[in-house]
């Protein structure tokens, strides 16, 4: 921690501090269950258990997303991915919406990945298309949805088709925006405008490094710190909100709505928004509602919830301005509802 006055001294100091802190955390964790008397009320305890389960389930996907994003930003040649994409904007976004097939992380991992893509040369609308399409158009989501519902009731097909259309329509709408950078938060727009952090151009001067370009490993580690600083707080807060609503909002309220073709769609979208389950596995979660809710409601849950929920908004708020998120949410909600209603009335 002491600064970099003497190169030889700083190596052990930081490393030792890190190892000591990790050891301390392990000790606290190992010793604390021995202290009796936490005696938390059931609801408080369950809120913690539920929030923690979301955090422990999602954190590895967040790390994976950051690692993939690091690979794209630091280790692949600049603009590597762009080379393989068509130039015509509509085709290009269509291709981008299928990128999730190669990056099968769930939506929490997609935010760091999309941030990495934007730094790496994607336009804002292109990254929005990726962010909305990838949670649905990826192999894990498709397999789990198929396991849960098969091809019955058109749920799987509706999910895939609606996901593709919504992502591309919204990408197209935002591509007509005169100043796409204003869609981002000022701090993220600034970090996009910042010269490439990676060791691609070797001429810029990192003052304290005295002209030495940081190694790629060093840049990767810095990127990890920067991304986790934004995403981990959002994950913690989003998980807590999801857990609190699960414990304190009575489900009977939502369930009463399930048999009406319109309300089943709206209620399932509200539920999807609150429970914030990862798109990889939300099909298993919603399976339990399959008997009480109409297929359109299930399809709307799987389409809307994969793109937008409490946790995702918290994560996306790190990158997009509030105004942009309100617009995206409204558009996704309208189109998911339309897909659900179509399935209920026509399907």
């Amino acid at each position: 921690m002491r600064g970099d006055r003497v190169g030889a001294r700083r190596i052990p100091t930081g490393l030792i501090l890190g190892v000591v802190l990790v050891a301390l955390a392990f000790t606290v964790r190992a010793v604390s269950p021995a202290f009796a008397g936490w005696g938390l009320p059931d609801r408080t305890q369950d809120t913690i258990t539920l929030a923690l389960s979301v955090i422990i389930e999602s954190a590895p996907f967040v790390f994976l997303g950051i690692l993939l994003s690091t690979v794209v930003q630091v280790w692949l040649p600049h603009g590597f991915l762009l080379r393989f994409l068509p130039r015509q904007p509509l085709l290009r976004r269509a291709a981008i919406s299928l990128l999730g097939m190669f990056f099968p992380v769930c939506e929490c991992g997609n935010v760091p990945l999309a941030r990495g893509f934007m730094v790496g040369g994607f336009t804002v609308p292109e990254s929005i298309t990726f962010l909305l399409a990838a949670p649905i158009l990826n192999p894990i989501t498709i397999i789990t949805t198929h396991q849960a519902f098969g091809f019955g009731d058109g749920i799987l097909i509706t999910r895939i088709v609606a996901g593709f259309i919504i992502a591309n329509v919204i990408g197209w709408l935002f591509s007509r925006h005169p100043n796409p950078d204003s869609l981002l938060t000022p701090s993220f727009a600034a970090s996009c405008a910042r010269p490439e952090p990676a060791g691609h151009d070797h001429d810029h001067d990192h003052g304290p490094q005295r002209g030495r370009t940081p190694s790629r490993i060093h840049t990767s580690v810095d990127l990890f710190a920067r991304e986790t600083a934004v995403i981990m707080p959002a994950l913690f807060i989003g998980s807590l909100v999801a857990a609190l609503t699960q414990v304190f909002v009575p489900r009977s309220v939502l369930l009463a709505l399930g048999s009406n073709p319109v309300w089943s769609v709206l209620a399932m979208m509200a539920l999807a928004f609150i429970v914030a389950v990862c798109s990889n596995v939300d099909a298993f979660f919603v399976l339990s509602f399959g008997s009480t809710f109409m297929p359109g409601g299930i399809a709307a849950f799987l389409t809307f919830g994969a793109m937008i929920d409490v946790k995702m908004l918290a994560l996306m708020r790190t990158t997009f301005s509030t105004r942009t998120l309100v617009q995206i949410t409204a558009l996704v909600a309208l189109m998911s509802a339309a897909a659900g209603l179509l399935l209920n009335y026509v399907g």
Binding site: G18, L21, V22, H218
Partner: peptide
């Protein structure tokens, strides 16, 4: 990565 962040913290 966490430990490595401490290692590189000085810069």
């Amino acid at each position: 990565f966490v430990v490595a962040s401490f290692f590189f913290s000085s810069s």
